[in-house]
Write a protein that binds this DNA or RNA. Structure first.
Length: 271
DNA sequence: GCCCCTTTGAAGAGT
DNA sequence: ACTCTTCAAAGGGGC
């Protein structure tokens, strides 16, 4: 069974190889990213070969967004622009991420002043099992109840980045093609396919991700990625380094080849 | 039932 | 400014 899985994944990889090397992208295009939009990741973590795929759409400056919020009260965020995308330009994309069905974009009661009872899917209820009874609460100290309240605060998830949106859309397709179910293996395939996409195709997802971040900022103006830090128990630093430096076996039973990645493709210009 | 794996990108934290 | 770390999704697998 595992062997089948490995072979199936291997076959797919053979059909979707990454760009062969520097300057050999399937459809060479002008660089889309600026220095400001480049990932702050260090070189060891970011595959140098694909560095030129950095987001072509830099995140708008926070000051810009806050200014918008001044003009558009949060009680009624103006989302018409986003929703019109469903039937508009974005709706014509071959890889359409539905703005109504995408979990983190659906509106719900989380929108201040919004009457809907359906909570915003980006908000995940805490894993707390039971609500305290009122008489229990009175026994708690203020500090305890405050900490508990904090813990019970629903989690607002991070907005999805371009690759996550791509994965969400393509996962089912890959699973159908190879009968794989193991996400680690699927994600490796999707990673390869992502790199095999043309820059225009990737740009669609960068654009979607950018809009998702904008919408997220409008819906949750005070939210910060820091809010979710430490909510997941993470593997040890050594383990992580081991896996990113090729010291650990991957889902195919082989070893990552990041260290042997070809020389980076240098963009001709920087926007 | 929790965590790991595996991917990329965004963003916070640390130096 | 630069590097490192965490978390987004997903679901099988291990403990």
């Amino acid at each position: 069974m595992y062997k089948e899985t490995v072979y199936s994944a291997f076959n797919l990889l053979m059909h979707y190889p990454p760009p062969a090397g520097a300057g050999q992208h399937p459809s060479p295009q002008p660089p889309l990213h600026s220095k400001a939009s480049q990932s702050p990741h260090g070189v060891p973590q970011l595959s140098p070969l694909y560095e030129h795929f950095s987001s072509p759409h830099p995140t708008p400056a926070p000051a810009d967004i806050s200014q918008k919020q001044v003009h558009r009260p949060l009680q009624t965020p103006d989302l018409s622009g986003f929703y019109s995308l469903t039937s508009g330009s974005m709706g014509q994309l071959p890889h359409t991420v539905s703005w109504f069905t995408h979990p983190s974009l659906m509106l719900g009661s989380s929108v201040p002043g919004h009457p809907a009872a359906i909570p915003h899917p980006a908000i995940v209820p805490p894993s707390g099992k039971q609500e305290l009874q009122p008489y229990d609460r009175s026994l708690k100290t203020q500090a305890e109840s405050k900490a508990e309240k904090e813990a019970k605060k629903p989690t607002i998830k991070k907005p999805l980045n371009a690759f996550m949106l791509y994965m969400k859309e393509m996962r089912a397709k890959v699973i159908a093609e190879c009968t794989l179910k193991e996400s680690a293996a699927i994600n490796q395939i999707l990673g390869r396919r992502w790199h095999a996409l043309s820059r225009e195709e990737q740009a669609k997802y960068y654009e979607l991700a950018r809009k998702e971040r904008q919408l997220h900022m409008q819906l949750y103006p005070g939210w910060s990625a820091r809010d979710n830090y430490g909510k997941k128990k993470r593997r040890s630093r050594e383990k992580h380094q081991e896996s990113t430096t090729g010291g650990k076996r991957n889902a195919f039973g082989t070893y990552p080849e990041k260290a042997a990645a070809p020389a980076p493709f240098l963009p001709m210009t920087v926007l």
